[in-house]
Each structure stands twice: as C-alpha cells, then as structure tokens.
Design a protein around this nucleic acid. Sequence first.
DNA 1: AAACCCATGTAATAGGTTACATGATTTG
DNA 2: CAAATCATGTAACCTATTACATGGGTTT
Lengths: 190, 190
Amino acid sequence: MKPRASEFAILGVLSLRPASGYDIKRFVASSIGHFWNESYGSIYPLLKKLANEKLIQVQKGPQSGRERMAYAITPKGETALRDWLSTLPRTEPFRSELLLKLFFAWRTPMDISVAQIEERKREEERRLPIYAQIKDQLSRQHADHPELPYWLMTVSYGRHRSEAVVEWCNETLSSLAKLQKTSKKERGAK
Amino acid sequence: MKPRASEFAILGVLSLRPASGYDIKRFVASSIGHFWNESYGSIYPLLKKLANEKLIQVQKGPQSGRERMAYAITPKGETALRDWLSTLPRTEPFRSELLLKLFFAWRTPMDISVAQIEERKREEERRLPIYAQIKDQLSRQHADHPELPYWLMTVSYGRHRSEAVVEWCNETLSSLAKLQKTSKKERGAK
DNA sequence: AAACCCATGTAATAGGTTACATGATTTG
DNA sequence: CAAATCATGTAACCTATTACATGGGTTT
C-alpha cells in the first residue's frame, strides 16, 4: 500500500527515453516542475533501488574518466509503471502556511497579513506568463506527438490554480481594507 | 531557519484557549482541517518540546484516575507566536499525484484518466457545500468576534480552490472526450 | 587558472504518519 | 455490560531535503 510516487516519477521519465540521474533532475524541473520535484538525494538512491528490482537497467556505465550513467526502463518496468498509472491517486494532502498565519493573525498588525498576501499574489502572477510560455514551447516542440494533449492538461491545471489564488488574494485584500476602515471608525466613535 | 510550522499551529490553538493534546487535534480538524492537519504522533511530542522551551506550561495535570493534561500558552509563547506570524510564509511546495499520472498517461487507456479526474471532481464537489456550512456555523458562533473575518478568509480560500479544480476537471474531461473522438476517426480513416 | 557547469553520490537531519499499547469514562 | 468515545503516549518507519564531498570537463 505504499505510494512510491517518486519512484514512478523517475520510471515515468525513463519511459520517455533513457537518462542519467542528472538528466532526470533537469527534465523534471523543466516539464513537471510546477507540480512535482525531485532532489538528487532521492533520485540517486531510487535509481539503485529500481535497478535492484529490475524495473530499470544500466544502459551505459562510465566509459571515460568522467562518470556518466544512463538508465533505461525494462519491460518489467513498463508493466509496473502502467499498473501504477492505473490506480487512483491518493487525495493530496494540502497544507498552507499562509492560511495558518492568516487564521491566527487577528491580534497582529494588519499590514503584516496584507504584505504576506501581496507577496503571494506576486508569486502567482509571476507564474501566469510562464504557463503560457511552457504551453507555446510544448506546442511547437511536441506538435502532433500523442503526449502533447496530456502535457497541456497539466499546464492548464497550473494556470487555473494560480488564477484562483490571485482572485482570492484580491478578494481578501479588499476584505482586509474594509476591516481596516471599520476598526478605525470604531476607534473614532469611542 | 527551521519552519516549525506544526509547533506554531499548536501554539496558535493554545493562544485561543488552554487545551489538551486531544482538544488540539479536534480543534484543528474542525476549524483548519481544510488546509492543515496534525496527528497525535506530532502533537504529544511537540507539546513536551514546547513546555521544555517554556512557550507553554501545564495548567492542570491529571487529577483523578483519568489522565487529562491542559496546556496554556505563556507570555514567552505569545511573543514567539507573534514573531512567527510576522515572518513571510515559505512558498508552499505543491505535489500532485493526479497530475503526475496524467502527464504519463498517453499510452494507457483513456478511460482510466477519465475515471481519475471524475473521482477528483466528485471529491471537490463534495467539499463545496461543506465550506458554505462552515461559513454559516462560524458566522453564527463567532458573530462580532474579531477573529471571524480572518477565519472566513481561510474558508473562502478553500472555496476558490475547489471551484478552480472542478473547472479544470470539466475542461480536461471535455479535452479527453475530443481526443477520444479524434483518435477514433483516425483509426476509422485507415 | 578561475569560474562554471556536468555529474554522482552520501550523511545528517527533518518532519511526519501509522500502528500499536494502554486504560478511563460515558452512553445505549 | 458492550461499545463508543475520551485521552495519552511511543516505536517503527518512511520519505524527502540539505549540505557536503568529490572530481571531470568547458569556457572565458
């Protein structure tokens, strides 16, 4: 009942083409970096584990002085990947430090909350053009490839997500502004 | 540079009122459960740690046979909490198993992806009335309390988030349906 | 030759979940 | 009196990040 999502992320990358640990790290960052990440600290140990389980195999070891491994997925690995892809994903646990701070913020100065939300808003606004960019790039580089529609769907998720956060930020900032006015008025009335 | 968000979540709850580990678990689940969670496995050890650091103190030990602790925040704890609330939250790492599966799904049967997305859609649709319910409940129970607006902001985040996911699900389901048609037509043309 | 990228890997640490053990009290 | 709920706590495990160590190759 283990999820082992990181292992299958690696296996998934290797199902596209053989690659080294370094390659995997870079591919993940550039293609699914907006909803997934892997660090070297997981990749290299997991590559050895996957090789032990015969889901992948070394295609090329280090030849010259410079070390460079290339791993390729095995038929057994393809099967394991397809099985994993077919199971329902776990409901993703969601934890937001921003919301935690906001929940307990009512006795702290309001401009701190405002600054935190504005910062978050900027982050998400910075992401929006990046999604558009990834979309264009993919559409050109993978035109007519069968994976393109699927890849675009994941990019679209990012866009929806960021847009929703920006909307919430705007709504919340105006709520805070109203709250500010109200409390000033109340202090004035006393 | 440690985040220690769980510790401050606990400290935050204790800033509202003294409570036991059991109380904390239940309060978290009922109030911030849609964006935060704590397990007993963290709560009890962290309570001891916080007590060691004099950020909280035991208010009541077990009196009768039945054990029941009550912890209260100390002035030092209030200061630590306020300091933590004032710092910018870390950008939240986002990992989606659903998107990972979708990204690699182009060689697996399409109805599997459809089922996964429909399941996710149902989950989010189930949440929507719950947000409305929490909102009503809070508005009644905490009317005129200064924390109410802040609490409602966090609930609103959940609503925005779930709505965005449902939208994406609908969009993606119709993309998949189109894709299905196209590939059928292509097979027919051959 | 310095700086930078390529490339692999490990150790320490962090941060958490799950399952289990234990037992009191309340409720049907 | 059985079942549910209240209540605390630990041990085992898992998963992942960070920082570090190491060194080859390339560019300026």
